[in-house]
Design a protein around this nucleic acid. Sequence first.
RNA 1: GCGGAUAUGGCGUAAUUGGUAGCCGCGCAAGACUUAGGAUCUUGUUCCGAGAGGAGUGGGGGUUCGAGCCCCCCUAUCCGCACCA
Length: 962
Amino acid sequence: MDYNFSEIEPRWQEYWREHHVYRTGDAGDRPHYYVLDMFPYPSGAGLHVGHPLGYIASDIYARYKRLHGYNVLHPMGYDAYGLPAEQYAIQTGQHPAITTEQNIARYREQLDKIGFSFDWDREVRTCDPKYYKWTQWTFLQLFKHYYDNGAGKAMPIAQLEARFAKQGTEGLDAACTEELAFTAEEWNTYDENRRQQVLMNYRLAYLADTYVNWCAELGTVLANDEVVGGLSVRGGYPVERKLMRQWSLRISAYAQRLVDGLEQVDWTDSLKEIQRNWIGRSEGAAVWFPLEMENGELRIENSADAGDNSQFSILNSQLKFEIFTTRPDTIFGVTFMVLCPEHELISEITTPEHKAEVEEYVTWAKNRSERERQAEVKKVSGVFTGAFAVNPLTNERIPIWVSDYVLAGYGTGAIMAVPAHDSRDFAFARHFNLPIRQVVSLEKDVTSDPATWTESMDAKTGYSVNSGFVTGMKVKEAMRAVIDKIEEMGIGHRTVNFRLRDAIFSRQRYWGEPFPIYYKGNMPCPVPEECLPLELPDVKEFKPTATGEPPLGHATRWAWDERQRCVVENSKIDNATVFPLELSTMPGFAGSSGYYLRYMDPRNDNEYFSAKAVGYWQNVDLYVGGAEHGTGHLIYARFWNKFLFDLGMAVKEEPFQKLINQGMIQGRSNFVYRSKADNNLYISKGLIKDMDEVTPIHVDINIVASDVLDIERFRAWRPEFADARFELEDGRYICGWEVEKMSKSMFNVQNPDDLVARYGADTLRLYEMFLGPVEQAKPWDTNGIEGVHRFLKKIWKLYDSNIDNQTSSKAALKVLHQTIKKITDDIERFSFNTSVSTFMICCNQLTDLGDGVGREVLEPLTVLIAPFAPHIAEELWHRMGHDTTICDAPWPEYDPQMLVEDTVKYPVQFNGKMRFMLELPADIDQAGVLDAVKAAPEAGKWLNGEPKKVIFVPKKIINIVC
RNA sequence: GCGGAUAUGGCGUAAUUGGUAGCCGCGCAAGACUUAGGAUCUUGUUCCGAGAGGAGUGGGGGUUCGAGCCCCCCUAUCCGCACCA
């Protein structure tokens, strides 16, 4: 009987579905294990072979854990909000909900064909009101909390209010947009509006003016990756930087914890490093530099011997500004200061004679798009303000410049420039001919003239020179000494800066979660939690409104009635009891930030998830997904989880214990070569003498098998190929190939359905694993799939002819036990490609053994294969007379005795040579080895005459080649 | 520029983690069975050499009895970040 996968696979898939075989149990005594895949965005293009790669790996592990007796949570769902469905809606008028629904149906169909063990009873969709209710709820909690640095966690905003009423900002250490200082008395005189403004400065979800990529033509803010070269990726419309009022999440408050948490998780070093870079922690100092106006309006007394007075004057100077530096030790080498073009001080300090020039520069710099600026990083630009600062340690006058190489978003937007020891300052100084002073030297007391330098000396090594009281110290010491000094002087302090910016949370789009926020005038008010979800209203048009409002501006029923506590018609807005609702929606990462928690208790309408559920499952044990989410989803989700942890909801601070990044699958394009001399002649790859004589043309990989072109299908593919003639080699047309991105335009997209139809799901599963290590990026290539398919046929045959054997030979059992050990080890280290090889070896060896294979061997082997090729395993399992599914079988244990014998006593045939390993006394010497070997009873049996080569190994093991 | 990774036959890869490199699969070659085969099976296949033998894990050096694996210096490719003070 032949291996008929197209009959077996759908039958078992149907059985599993009908009997809810993969439904997750609730708690119980069994140990738990949570295996999660990054849920997909259901795009119109459907799945390609890259998607299932990670799903197959996680499915293997989930099935393996089940066979090991674990209660496994292995859910799947859809990240269903997103731009493509909305763009499609704008073009066609079809509601994104319908498009999304269709795409989900197609995804589900494709996923089902591959035989995953997902618990579909727990499916979530981010666009489902029952799901986004909790996305909105979390947003409200973020709105209602602030981050208390002292407590090291999020605290209710009500506590902050109480504190303000009692002691103002006195002693407050909280994450905020801007440092504020007021007393309790002042607070108590503030009106409600003013108080709300103050609180907004602290909320973890806050409304603030932020620079964004604004695309007027599309009417929306775009993410950085949606903008290329100053133009929108979609449509190619110009994008400008614009200051807009936007919701943001104060993720920066969690920066330190996001760094620290990386210590606790089992992720690859490279991904941890990506996150560390993104968070960008730098230690250094904040220093205040007082200003000196040229015309003498403010002049700091020469403090060389003025003692406390000078410090007093610096501290009390209204005109001072704060800089951040990671190199406080170089403060003696400061030769100019630079402010970013957005710096508020510029207008105050610029002297009249420089005003025009500075204003022109600032206007120019501000209007440049982020992209333009980044593209011209090498170009030095800037302008002198006419103003001077005073170096608090040397009392030198230092010119203040403005330049866009200083960024508004980092530190304080102002720097002390040390051109000798910072490459950017160096370039600036050279360009504007500013002085350069060396203050660090590799060797003690040895300096050179910076005028001769071609580059700055940036390394944090060596000794301080020309640096007052730190001269002669090592750089590290000098840093400490300078910070101590400025702290003692009260003009600065040790501090840590992060590159991580707060996450902009508003999108001027329709297809996303609505904000549960309405506006009383300018004041945002939360919709009561009991009224959630605030459902996304229908609109007739998905474009921005004529007045430039987001698409939700088209909704006619999008107002909040405070008294009735429900959404009402816009016409009822009176700004007394009925108010307009927020028109922007949440970004894609909102719904994906907490979905793993919801899977634990997905049908709970009263809570995000129950304490019992999270208490049982804890967090995700294994998360599988692409590394491209390293700076997006994986940061947001960790932040989200930490916040919920602070609220006492999540029980683990880190959401994803172990993370495997599956490598990207690239496309492998095929080419035919058209002769330039004859437009209808196509030359097989091996016959081309000179590539200049032919034109390579992309050809659909679906009409090519193992680089051999299906000529008939090629002729039928497109009219212009109908009369194609071929120069064949060995009767075949061999195509060329190249690795490119998988894309429709290159005809190299491989759809898993085609492969399932042709070879079956089990073959696809095995082949995707066989391709190479899961983590490695690799081109998709079907050239080897036949071999894997052949293996399944062999396995089928092996069972077919041995299934009734009752006895097993010792050799067969040995093969089995070797296989058990190898497969178990392989799965534990996620080395699934070697597992497939192991199966093939096992199958070949058992086939060679012939009659000695019985059920004693075949049954455990079926269990081993089940995670990889569940359909064939299930079928064989039942053919062997079991009436429960293979999921209930126990994972076989190997007998170490069976393996020990093999490595120590018996020879192994290996590539035509006979090799042994023998245990020898520890104190044996090289000369004694041969005699010892000959004397060994185990060896004597196998040794015919003198061994060819004896390799002495100073351990207890010896290798002998005969 | 900074950071991370990778480099092994014609190709995808493997190597008990420092112990005789090239397992498994593809491809290729020869053969068997076949009216036929895009089926199945057998044998061979790192390179050079008829052979004995020699060379060999991107290149160069080092540690070691022993290195694909560890250390140093290059080279190439991929990925992430990019004026982050």
